[in-house]
Amino acid sequence: MTGINLIFWFIALMTIISASIVVLSNNLIYSAVSLLFTLLGIAGLYVFLWADFIAITQILIYVGGILVLIIFGIMLTHRITDVTLSQSSNQQMLGGGIILIIFLGLSYMMLNTPWFQDTAVEPQETINQIGYLLMIDYLLPFEVASILLLVALIGAALLSRSSK
């Protein structure tokens, strides 16, 4: 049990440290690479929460799709002659103070609320049940999501073509 605890806290620490590199680093490529470790760490947390399908989806879509898209965005919006892909941050002290207050309020609320909790046995797999839920209880949002993806695809292609 302690070994599992050790792995859990290692993953949590890795997630948080790389997330802080994402927001604090001055080099955008460093930010993108540490976003990779953040997303992988979050996928690890999903495994600890018995969400196998969501963990795989996280790796496939976030790491395989969105992160590649973001790196493309960085490459396309900086001239090759720019040696450093640096960027500035404004008013970090003021922003940090406000965010610290928000974080303290948030964690006070989370630790002092009596959340509804119920025990459960670890399921063999979740894919089966997720499939039933998507096809029966959540069929309409599922179909709407497919239309949304189509609209986003067409919209992104239309927006990013050259103006001619």
Binding site: I61, G65, I70, L149, A156
Partner: peptide, 11 residues
Amino acid sequence: LAAAEAAVALA
């Protein structure tokens, strides 16, 4: 939604 948002935002 995050995937759709990332595509449109990058465009």
